[in-house]
Computed example of a mutant assay.
Amino acid sequence: MTILLVEDEDRLAAALIELFHAEKYLADHALRRAGKKTPVLMLTARDEIRDKIEGLDQGADDYMTKPFVPEELLARVRALSRRQGEVLLDELRFGDLCLSLATNELNAKGQSVRLAYKEAELLKLLIANKGVILSKETILRKLWGDESDAVENNVEAYVSFLRKKLGFLQSSVRIQAIRRQGYLLLEEEAL
């Protein structure tokens, strides 16, 4: 299940996304776009009834006020997944790739390789945004957070590591660099 988190405090959003990732949920921090069915859980300090009604009427599936208890947050996420009728994934697939979310083992064409944590997080991010160019800044923010000392060279290094593993697996999936824009996950047949 993918969770779209609406949170105006970037540091809290980064911490919550890490919490969700540890529980094997895919999570993104943004506003709902028209027509998307991704469950939205709003976390806010606004606790007036009219604020809750407005948030729910604007597309949120659930609304929690701060401060909150992480266990309650995760219980609400589980409830959202049941309400959506979705099954939590234990693997992600794209093209000929299959990534185990439990072990970070990447399989393609009968071969497998274990990904380091950041490599797996990068691949999850690219799969979740397949067909979308992700800037180095976006990747830095999502994988390392706003408070990190990581730089664009970190992104380039992990893209290189991941490309080598895709090459080892002889996968039809590749990471294409788009000059001055970022990276795009593609299948060879789609080129």
Rank of each mutant, 00 (worst) to 15 (best):
M1L: 12
T2W: 06
T2R: 14
V6W: 07
E7R: 05
D8R: 11
E9N: 12
E9P: 01
E9W: 08
L12E: 07
A13G: 08
A13I: 01
A14K: 08
L16N: 08
I17L: 10
F20A: 12
E23R: 11
E23M: 13
K24E: 14
Y25C: 12
L26N: 11
D28E: 15
A30F: 05
A30Q: 06
L31G: 01
R32T: 07
R33K: 10
G35V: 15
K36S: 15
K37T: 14
K37H: 14
K37A: 11
K37C: 04
T38D: 10
T38C: 02
V40K: 00
L41M: 11
R50F: 10
D51V: 00
D51T: 09
D51I: 03
K52L: 03
E54C: 03
E54S: 07
E54P: 00
G55K: 04
G55Q: 04
L56N: 04
D57P: 00
D57V: 04
Q58R: 13
G59K: 13
Y63I: 04
M64C: 11
P67G: 04
P67H: 06
V69Q: 09
P70N: 10
E71T: 02
E72S: 12
L73R: 04
L74I: 13
A75Q: 14
R78M: 04
R78I: 15
R82N: 11
R82E: 10
R83P: 05
E86S: 10
V87M: 04
L89R: 13
D90N: 14
E91T: 15
R93L: 08
G95W: 09
L97R: 11
L97G: 11
C98I: 07
L101H: 14
E105K: 00
L106M: 08
K109Q: 07
K109E: 13
G110Q: 10
Q111P: 07
S112K: 10
R114Y: 01
R114S: 13
L115T: 03
A116Y: 14
A116C: 03
Y117S: 12
K118Y: 11
A120T: 02
L122K: 01
L122D: 02
L122I: 07
L123V: 10
L125W: 13
L125P: 03
L125I: 03
L126Y: 05
I127L: 09
A128N: 14
V132W: 06
I133N: 02
L134K: 02
L134S: 06
L134W: 03
S135N: 05
E137N: 13
T138M: 05
T138E: 14
I139A: 13
L140M: 09
L143Q: 01
W144I: 02
E147P: 05
N153E: 10
E156T: 12
E156M: 01
Y158S: 03
Y158E: 00
S160I: 01
R163Q: 02
L166K: 08
G167L: 06
F168C: 12
Q170C: 07
S172G: 14
S172L: 15
S172M: 01
V173F: 05
R174T: 02
R174A: 12
Q176C: 15
Q176V: 15
Q181D: 03
G182F: 10
L185R: 02
E187P: 08
E188I: 08
E189W: 15
E189Y: 04
E189D: 07
